[in-house]
Amino acid sequence: MFDQRLFQPSFLQEVDARVRLGCAVGLCLCLSLLGDVYACLVGLAVSALLLLLARPCWQPLLCRLAAINVFVVFLWCVTPWSVPGEELMRLGWLTISVQGVRLSLLVSLKANAIAAVFLALVGTMTAPELGHALERLHCPTKLVFLFLFTARYVHVLGQEWRVLFTAAKLRGFRPGTNAATYRTLASLLGLLLVRSHERAQRVHEAMLLRGFDGSFRSVTVFHAGPRDLGFALLLLLCAVGIVTLELCGVPYV
């Protein structure tokens, strides 16, 4: 229900999920630590290239990127005039500072670069794939279990919420800012929670009946071959290049 296809099949999806997850974490952390505009620009170029390699479906992808940039736009509205510093220009009583614009620019570049890396490397996985990859990377078993369970039931509960809401609308429910709306929404939410609770108990009993003993047996088999290693090395080289650029620091205006 919440799954939207963002990517067409590409060679990126054939790379081992653990390798992709590891590379994504490394590259995202490396990008988030940057403080140099040129290094960020190179980082954005690398991540855009990765995104292109993942063969995206453009329309849904652009919607996602727009949603990510809402916060960035909010920062652009506030930061340029709220950061004190050298005056760049004056708009009425607001002084736009060089430091403020630089900070906003840095944040926009970094936010988009990290989002693109995440989309290209992790966004191409399904939730179960990510869960199993996390398990193989020695994430706590209970946490992986919780994640897989949540991922499984999100769709079921989303459907249930839709049914409840449609039923309420058919009975003449029109949302507005009043106590009746809040009471109705809270009752629907309460009903959703009660039903989830009951479903959880049923599922738990069914799993006990099938011999659930707390361990999770995955049938997904991961193979990391020379190609995966090459991919990881290539990304590592890119990260090293970006960090070198950051440390050497080309002077800018």
């Binding site: 999100v154 509960l157 919420w161 929670l193 959880a200 108990q201 599922v203 707390g214």
Partner: peptide
């Protein structure tokens, strides 16, 4: 969190996810 409560927690986490998509008029 023991294994007996894990299912309930997982499904409540899913309800939290769905509930946080609900828009309330203000």
């Amino acid at each position: 969190l023991d294994y007996d409560r894990l299912m309930t927690t997982g499904i409540l986490a899913a309800a939290f996810f769905v509930g946080s998509l609900v828009h309330v008029p203000i």
